[in-house]
Write a protein that binds this DNA or RNA. Structure first.
Lengths: 196, 196, 196, 196
DNA sequence: CATGAATGAGCGTTCATTCAT
DNA sequence: CATGAATGAACGCTCATTCAT
């Protein structure tokens, strides 16, 4: 077990080094040598934990996105109202991205392309996150808060896309304002749009 | 004039070949040789019209995005109501993307990364498109249709992001459904969200 | 005849443009387009007068070196003493190079490499110049000024090499001193070395 | 230490392969792939030891020229008379070039151009070699063998240039005679020219 | 004669990945 | 497990040369 934890530590170090490095100048410009340097390991060591550079990027998505989903799930569990859940989800999303700008940069700026070449890697998509959004909206419908005649899959994408672009614009602007201030305007817009 | 048209033809052929080629497997995987082959010109000829591969991508954005903006502008000019303008904008956006899936793929899947490395190329951003959205919303406020207390820059991003993600999801799903059917649900969501 | 002169003018313009251009950053860095621009002609025009870029460089040598040989010959014809001829040759050589630093740069810095790839172009060598030197020394032997037991071909090369290196050093130093002041020390050295 | 020798061996193999390859058809015609093939390494391996093709050429000069200077220094140290030193220097110079014609070809035929583009690389010049020549001549002046009124920097260049051209002519003639037979005629010429 | 748009072969360099130690 | 030296395929870009006008 000790060995496992040691290995996990090194794996984490590599993954975090990759996030930092990919965030600097993009996935393609980043070299595995730079990731290794940042992680304090030899280049070859990365390949003991990740099959390839692509796999490293994919793993970041899979694990970090899943981490967010799990975290958001538990944070939202305590709330009853779907409206408040929705509002809180926006807040959590923007807060997390603001707190981890490197990770945000990888998600926002490399994600699309990754989603592209990862057509073959179905686990690397955002389905889980879309599902989380969908569950909240459906809950709102059950609670009588939101309209019944919603095109749910369209709404999910719109909602995610709005948050996503909000973060991207913030990143491209040089992170020179407080991202979380966008949360309430965004939430208001969607909650009103969804209401009966 | 004949010469100009000749040059323009070839330049256009190269640009369209680049859109097709970049769309296939992504910008980075695409080779200039493949673009040249697709355009029916020699590799070196591309460099008579574009300074570099990056410049070719950037030019696609600058010119095609501007083309959309201009076209949408004129199409929307005839409409009076901001609500209808907004609805029509979504329809036009999705329709154009559906009609030119290669261009859409480049926009959606390569745009982010481009926006990334194009921090240095200010003209390559979406400001003009954001402005178009902003004008419509402001018009709606003047018409008394939309609330006055909107955080406009947040709304613009949300609106664009929603359309953007809608297109991306469609592309990643293999374009196996009619994209334009998403237009009204999307428009409804936002129009309701913006109303007094 | 008028046409011939016109043609000759253009040919000369191209050749001089080539000298200027080759001198700037070396033969390999120079492009035919730059030569054409400098000459005020289209790129293709150069090929009406010279078979290739190599041929252009070779032509410079052949014609300019021959020009020097002819000029030096006639200038030296009036002198009787081989010693004075030799001294004057050094003076003329250094003076010409100082007066035409671009041509000097091409001769000194591109000549070697040219002599290399021009093994196949026998006319592009310095035989004529070596012969000029040899004639003077033999004359000196006939005049009883110079030793009879000279290894003539060795002396010719040494004499040329000394002048050549003198010019090269001056060029590489940035032409920041008067080259002709080297003439008498050089001539003295050789005249003493050759004397009975 | 074992590792160091290993690395040195490979670096040496690459450098010698470069000398051979550059000598064949000149620096510009030579490809890094050919150097690698000759060295028995992969193309990329060269870049573990040398920053660029230019750097490889420069390194040859820096290290080999310095090697000659060091070797000639120690070989000449045992001689007392400046005249004999000078004679021996010519013999050593020509002998070394004859023994290593590939290296000689690189020195003679690529050196000029290198000196050209290496204005920025001051270490790549021949100053050390000129200094060696200068020391011998000054010693001869102290010994009362050579005239006091010598323009030393002119003499150094003349002496080097004479040897240089002797080697170049031999190379361009196809190395079809014994180079060292030129040593004594050359040395005689200069020693007489320098004497009181 | 002159043009200059078009050609396309050619090459230095990078870097993800492997594997002997 | 870890290393890092070595690999070698891959590609953007240049530019001498051609030829239709």
């Amino acid at each position: 077990m000790v060995r496992v934890r040691k290995g996990d530590d090194k794996r984490d170090r590599i993954m975090n080094a990759a996030i930092t490095t990919f965030a600097q100048n993009g996935y393609h410009q980043a070299t595995m040598a730079a990731v290794a340097r940042e992680a304090g390991v030899a280049a070859g060591t990365i390949y003991l934990y990740f099959k390839s550079k692509d796999n490293l990027l994919i793993s970041i998505f899979e694990e970090k996105v899943q981490g967010f989903i799990d975290e958001f799930h538990s944070q939202l569990a305590q709330e009853e109202s779907a409206e408040i859940k929705l509002r809180k989800l926006v807040q959590l999303h923007l807060l997390e991205m603001q707190n981890r700008p490197d990770l945000a940069a990888v998600f926002q700026l490399e994600l699309r392309q990754s989603r592209h070449f990862m057509s073959a890697y179905p686990k690397a998509d955002l389905k889980g996150y879309f599902d989380l959004i969908g569950e909240i909206i459906e809950k709102g419908q059950q609670q009588g808060l939101f309209r019944k005649d919603l095109y749910l899959s369209a709404i999910k994408r719109a909602f995610f896309g709005a948050m996503d672009e909000t973060v991207t614009s913030w990143l491209l602007a040089g992170r020179n304002y407080d991202l979380t201030q966008m949360a309430d305007p965004l939430a208001d817009l969607f909650i009103r749009g969804l209401r009966e």
